[in-house]
Every structure is written in structure tokens, then in C-alpha cells.
Design a protein around this nucleic acid. Structure first.
Lengths: 342, 342
DNA sequence: CACTCGAATGAATTCGAAGTCATTTGGTTG
DNA sequence: CAACCAAATGACTTCGAATTCATTCGAGTG
């Protein structure tokens, strides 16, 4: 039993009790290992007497089935990979935590992966394969080839708030274009004629969708607009707004790529002694908490995060159960928040 | 680019190829399974020729070692549990994402666990045991018994921003009391005499520490203060500030439990036509991004998140390598942010 | 060319739980 | 009481990679 006597005279951790295995429990309960295993599986054929003996022995030893060993034989890890970008401004961390709350109800846990500019998606996928995850939830850019790799492995994949129109893959998202159109309509109804769009980064499909919504709806009303490209950050909102203020003429309304830029816009306008919404109107997109604070009371479109997260989880779980289910795209309408900035 | 033309309409998953094992690779490369295994272990004794053959075969089959099987035999899962509360206002989700970036460098991944008011910590710990994690990072309340359970299992545990003075457990945190004292000193130097402390929830040790700092330092200066109990939220900040405004007299300064409450305080004061800092000064704690936006420019103490996260990771890794290392408490000083609110 | 010695290799074993299958148990029926 | 059938049980095998250990290879030496 003293197997660590010879191997390493320095650094013997001496973790007194190596964790108990199903064999240990079986021995203590006077049953077979198979019986122990069955006791931890719902619906298995075990007598009340045996179940009770095993439960007692397991409690005594502090036994918990080893999920690693179980996963090896069942080919189910009960682990889902969540892939997000390192870009924390986008609230992905919070989404992750919320996803976890839903998945936990199904005894599924989240293994977290972040992709940054330097870390290659290919490398991340390799790591994901290693852990034999049951499914993937992604809020990060996948190439068509990478999507195909998942399909080939038979690992269900659901995108959260990513637009992949040209690919047969499951997605959950918010109707960005439609949301912006609602905002534009309200602005027009309130008399706005000249628009400045503070857009998001070109490489963001969401930003392009929002821009498309704005462009189409403003053209529909045969009004004029100009577009300035930002990157979702407060700083870019400040910079672009200042550019406009320094320019020849002010627009009637700023249509911003997200709430953070809208808030930056409001701050900058106020800094130039311009009143919002009297002198200029400002609208955002997302419905973040900060936007509703007294200082801003942003007019915006709120994404139905709860619904979206729930949909993501249920779509993934369905596809874990039945990998042959066809891809599905679910698009939720945003909710117009009638703030005081427009 | 239209590569999905053929299979798109019926969408056949084509799971044909169950994932390749080391035996498959071995057969294709004409070597033994042992050789394959060695090729994926750095420092193992393999000839260049063999390594090359195996690498080629592995690439061809898209082989990645099964981390589950590996974990079973090595007793190292390369997984660390991160336990946070569901309370997303506290930025734990963001911390999680940052921790992940650091741990990923060491090929360690995060399995996420959230504890809510209803979900028992005991249940969560049971789940953690099942996954044979190598260590635990916790930002959630553990009882002494729960801490002992981890110790007994030989699983290293590091607390992030939790105060556990009465327990021999490793922690990383910010010196809250000291930070508040710096703020008080500045306020006093600028002439403040009467203070209102908008405190955090009683059951938060961090809140109590910050309150202690305020109390001690105000007493040191032989000045007066009153304390109102909130819960870190914007709403509670608004409510308490309004109470004060509605009361008989205004203080010279509000000392808030965190930045969010400080911002609520500023918003509410402004709503009552009071100027900050001219009529009343306001200070917060944390150094959140929003606090630095133009509308607020909060005077506060910034927690050195990067340092703290780095410390958490390195302390945990050290203890995973050598479980016998004694517990250690690391306390970082916050950085005074000289804003425009005090 | 025989002889070392270390590097490289593969067969066999191991980790822990779950599934398979043959066997036993216990309760019911004629 | 024999016969029967379903429920309960345990011996054995399986999952996939790492490790142990005995063996083989190959370069270098006298």
C-alpha cells in the first residue's frame, strides 16, 4: 500500500486519503463495483437495500463518481465549450455566466475558451477536441472551414449573436437591422432629417448589419446621412463625435453602433454645450444597464438577452441529443426603449 | 466560394469518422501506441524519424490526444474550477475571462461554476470533485468546513477578492481599508468635515472592510459621519442619496461602497441641482471604466486587477505543483484616481 | 570486430466507471 | 410444490492514453 515510499524522497504530498473509487465503496458496502455504478445511474435496476448500503458507504468515504472516467466510457463529457473573444467590452463574459446558470440545470458545465488577436482559432479548436466536449457555443469569428471541422467531428455548434448568413449553421441573434430601422423611424417622425451614423468596426458582422439597417431606412425616407467608422469603444465615440462637432454643420441625430458609443457621443456633445435631445438626438443599441442611468437615459434598442440565452442553450441541448437536427437560425426582435436622448 | 452547394438542402451530418485514437495513428504510422503517446509528450525519448512519421499520420487523421483519457491516467485534468456568484454587478464574469487568458498560457482551462442564493455550495463542490479539477479559484462565500473539504481532498484553493482573515487559506485581494483611508485623507485635506458613508451589504466582507477604513480614518481626524446601508447597486445608491437630500442637512462628502453607488449618488445629487464637487464631494471605490467617462470622472481607488489576476494565477499554479506550500495572503494597494468628483 | 552504454522501442498494465451478459434471487402463478 | 419470469447482481470487458519494464538498436570505443 505504501507505494510512494521509494519514488521520490523530496516532496511527498502526503494527501492522506487518495480519493475513493467505486471499488472502495463496493468493498465497504459489501457489493460489486457494478452495483455501485448502477446506484449512481437513474433508472438502473437496483434493490432498495443495495442502494441504501451503497449510499451509506459512499457518504462515509466522501465518494463522488469520477466524471473523467465516466466520460471516457460513455463518450459524454457533460462539458460544453464556450468560445468568446477577449474583447470584454462586448459583455461576453456576462453572457458566459448567464449561459452557465442555464446549463447547470442540466448538469452540464462550461469550459471556457477565449480567442484573442494572437491566438489562432485553429489552436483553440484543437484544444476543444482534446476535451471531448459535447457541444460548442461560440461568440467569436469562425471561418467556414472551422465550422465544417465541427460538423465533421459531429460536434453541435451554436453561434450567439454572430451573423453567418452564408453558412448552414445554427445561430441565435437579435435583429439588428430591424432594430435600427425602428429607431430611424422614430427619429424621422420627430423631425430628424440629417443623420450621422457612428458605425462599429468593419470586421464586425453585427456592426455591418446595424449599418445596413440605418442606410436602408434613411434611404427609404430619402434623407441624408454620413457614416463615420468607430470600433464600439467609448474612446472612438468621443473622437468621432468631436470630429462632427468640429465640422461645418451638426446633424439632427446621431445613430450609434452601440450604447457605449452613444454614451460617449452624449458626453462629448454636452462637453461642447450642446443639449441632448434638444440640439441633437442620440440613439444607441444594446440596452446596457449604464444606458438607463439618470445621466443618460438612452433611447435605444434592448436586446432580449434572457430569451437569446435560453434559445442558445435549448438549441444546443437539442442538437446534443440528436446531431441530425437541421441547422436553425433564431432571430429575436429588440425592444424599443423610449429614453430621453431622442 | 459556393462550396456548400451540394449537401445544403438535406444537411446530412456525415459523422462517419469516429475520432481517431492513438492506436489508429500508430497503425498508420507503423509504430506502437506507446510511440505515439511519447510523441505528444515533451522531453520523451523518441527518434526524429519516428516523431516525423507520427506527426504525419496524426495530421492525416486529424488526431488530437483525448484529454479525458489522459486525465484518467495522469491524474491531472489541466482544468481549474472557477467559482463565482451569480451577482453579475461585481464584474466577476470579466475577471473569469481575464483569468482564462492567463491560465491558457499554461494550457490550463477553466470550468465555470456559479453559485446563486438557491444553489447550495455543497452541491457545487460535489460537482467540482467529479471533474477532478487541479485547483479552484473562488470568488464566492465558502464556509470554513468547505475550505477544509478542499484541503482534505488535496485540491489547492485560492480566493480572489475575498477576505478570510480567520482561515489559513490563500487569498489575493485589494487593501480596501487602506484605500478608503487615502480617500478620506484627501477629502479632509480639502476641507470636508461631515461625511456620509453609503455602505455595501452587511454580508459582504469587502463592504465591511471598506466601512472599517472609513470609520477608523474619520475617527482619527475626530470628524463626524453617518452610515447608510446599501447593496452595491445603482438603485440603492439613488435611494440612499435621496434620503440624505431629503434630510435636514447635507454632508460635505459622500464616501461610497463602490463606484456604481458613487455614480448613482452623483446622478441623484445633480438631479437635485447640487453641483459635484462644489456643493458636495463624492468618492467611490473600484476604478470601473464607466467611472472615468466624461459625465462622472469619479475620484476613486482603482483596484490593480491585472496584478491581482496574475497573482491569483501564479499562486494557484505554484500550489498545483506543490500542494504542501503554505497558504499565503497577498494584498495589493489600490491606486488613487484623482477625478473631478472630489 | 567485439563490446559498452545509452537511446529508442513495443508489449503489457493501469487509471475509474459503465456497459454486457450470464447467473442468481425472489416473487407469483397454476 | 414445481414452474416461471422479471428483477437484481457480479465477473468481465471496454473506453484511450500514459507509464513501466524488458528488449532492441545504434553509435562510439579499444
Amino acid at each position: 500500500m505504501e507505494k510512494n515510499s521509494g519514488n521520490n524522497n523530496k516532496l511527498v504530498p502526503q494527501v492522506s486519503s487518495k480519493r475513493a473509487t467505486s471499488y472502495d465503496v463496493a468493498r465497504l458496502a459489501g457489493v460489486s463495483q457494478s452495483a455501485v455504478s448502477r446506484c449512481f445511474k437513474t433508472g438502473a435496476s437496483v434493490s432498495v437495500k443495495t442502494r441504501e448500503k451503497v449510499r451509506k458507504a459512499a457518504d462515509e468515504l466522501g465518494y463522488q463518481p469520477n466524471a473523467i472516467a465516466r466520460g471516457l466510457i460513455t463518450r459524454r463529457s457533460n462539458i460544453v465549450a464556450v468560445v468568446i473573444t477577449e474583447f470584454t467590452t462586448l459583455n461576453y463574459p456576462e453572457m458566459t455566466s448567464r449561459l452557465n446558470e442555464h446549463l447547470a440545470k442540466h448538469d452540464i458545465h462550461i469550459l471556457l475558451f477565449t480567442v484573442g488577436p494572437q491566438s489562432d482559432m485553429t489552436v483553440v479548436l484543437d484544444q476543444i477536441w482534446q476535451y471531448q466536449v459535447d457541444g460548442i457555443i461560440a461568440s467569436a469569428p469562425f471561418s467556414e472551414a472551422e465550422i465544417q471541422r465541427c460538423a465533421k467531428r459531429g460536434i453541435p455548434l451554436v453561434f450567439y449573436n454572430r451573423i453567418c448568413n452564408d453558412s448552414a449553421v445554427s445561430t441565435v441573434g437579435c435583429d439588428h437591422a430591424e432594430g435600427v430601422k425602428i429607431l430611424i423611424d422614430r427619429l424621422v417622425r420627430d423631425g430628424a432629417k440629417r443623420f450621422v451614423v457612428l458605425s462599429g468596426p468593419d470586421d464586425s458582422a453585427v456592426a455591418r448589419e446595424r449599418l445596413r439597417g440605418a442606410t436602408e431606412q434613411i434611404e427609404l425616407h430619402r434623407l441624408s446621412m454620413s457614416v463615420l467608422g468607430g470600433d464600439y469603444t467609448y474612446e472612438s465615440g468621443v473622437r468621432l463625435t468631436q470630429q462632427v462637432i468640429d465640422g461645418s454643420s451638426l446633424p439632427d441625430a446621431f445613430v450609434c453602433a452601440n450604447d457605449v458609443m452613444a454614451i460617449a457621443c452624449i458626453d462629448t456633445l454636452r462637453g461642447a454645450d450642446l443639449a441632448v435631445p434638444e440640439d441633437v438626438k442620440v440613439v444607441g443599441f444594446d440596452g446596457i444597464t449604464v444606458g438607463q442611468w439618470h445621466a443618460y437615459q438612452l433611447t435605444t434598442i434592448e436586446q432580449p438577452l434572457d430569451r437569446m440565452i435560453e434559445a442558445t442553450v435549448s438549441m444546443l441541448l437539442e442538437r446534443i441529443e440528436d446531431i441530425t437536427l437541421p441547422a436553425e437560425k433564431r432571430l429575436f426582435a429588440g425592444k424599443y426603449i423610449d429614453g430621453a436622448s431622442a
